[in-house]
Nucleic acid binder design. Structure first.
Lengths: 196, 196
DNA sequence: CAGGATGTCTAGCGCTGCTAGGATCCGGTC
DNA sequence: GACCGGATCCTAGCAGCGCTAGACATCCTG
């Protein structure tokens, strides 16, 4: 009873991961509009109802992919920040890494930030990876700066805006580096508090 | 032959406007997910195929609504800029007006910036209202400032990010005023060029 | 080996965007 | 005034969507 149900639980968890990984792969290769429950079920070689025994619905699958994305993004940003030659350049490094992530994995980015999601941010039940991402921006500023959270919010917003507006052609696709330079120049050095 | 076909063309143009207005109203009252071709056809008291004799598909209807939105937004921003007490505050006024527009008409804003659209920006066939909106931001800066376009792009991006991230709860919903203050303080006064 | 629970699939519901083909109406011509 | 031709519009239906009820098989327990 114990060993058997444990094995079943393991298999179930593995199938869970298989579904998420397959959904992500399908989205990254063919776009989210190609990720239908039927096609996804085909790919994992199970029938549709199996998906619904793991997730409440398609949105939950997207959210699971998004959560993976946040974990990756947090690591990506963290590595970039710590690899910065000196603390004064950490903000630029993190912003670079963010834009890099967004352009390299557009489908994943959409799951995290564009598609309707049931993930809750900035609240008690916010999953740790989400908060970790945000904190990477916060940590680019001096701990004594009481507006570091505000700075992080606005910078994140600007990066997100730059990402989606340029991707959809609402601002020219080129010149992202220039925008980053400009953004960091204005936000990195404040009149009321230097960087860490 | 001439008078009759002219009358028909008038009626057709009016029905065209009716469709767009109805789609917009439906979206603003019940959200875009409630705007289906069937429901829309019902509301305008025609059958579905009539919609397709006016528009290439649902996306084209959304784009038409979005275009109306850009016209309104351009006027909204322009009025705000010209009503600013002095030129130094025009940027703040325009940003305020932008956020105001986005929060007051979320469905319209979605049509313009979030939903997949076939509108082309920053190109030769960009409809004038789109460019007008962008120019309202550009005109907040000194004509001699060769980076005014860049400033406008980044500010617009930040405003868009603030809008969608706060709306979806990815950053706290409150504190928009504070973010605006912060944004304008950093971008309004530059070390290399004062405002008009 | 029988009984029951667990797991899975087949089939189908109501909805979507979109369209082919037939009916209907109406202006122009004899 | 009667008819023809073309424009206009609607009925009906297609393929695909997310999702689920109920039948079926499979495996563990007693």
């Amino acid at each position: 009873m114990s060993a058997i149900s444990e094995r079943r639980e393991r298999e179930r968890a593995q199938r869970h991961r298989l579904i998420v990984a397959t959904a992500r792969e399908l989205a990254e290769t063919e776009g989210w509009e190609a990720v239908t429950t039927r096609r996804l079920a085909d790919r994992v070689e199970y029938s549709q109802p199996v998906l619904y025994s793991h997730f409440n619905g398609k949105d939950a699958i997207v959210a699971a992919v998004a959560l993976d994305g946040f974990t990756e993004l947090a690591g990506h940003l963290s590595r970039a920040r710590q690899a910065a030659p000196d603390p004064g350049q950490s903000l630029r490094a993190v912003c670079d890494a963010y834009l890099d992530f967004a352009t390299e994995r557009p489908a994943l980015y959409d799951a995290m930030f564009v598609l309707p999601t049931e993930l809750r941010f900035a609240s008690a039940e916010t999953p740790p990876p989400l908060r970790d991402c945000f904190d990477e921006f916060v940590n680019c500023f001096n701990p004594g700066d009481e507006r570091r959270e505000l700075s992080a919010e606005v910078i994140w917003s600007a990066l997100h805006g730059i990402t989606v507006l340029s991707r959809s052609g609402r601002i020219p696709a080129g010149g992202q580096e220039e925008r980053l330079d400009f953004l960091v120049a204005r936000f990195g050095t404040a009149e009321d508090g230097p960087l860490t």
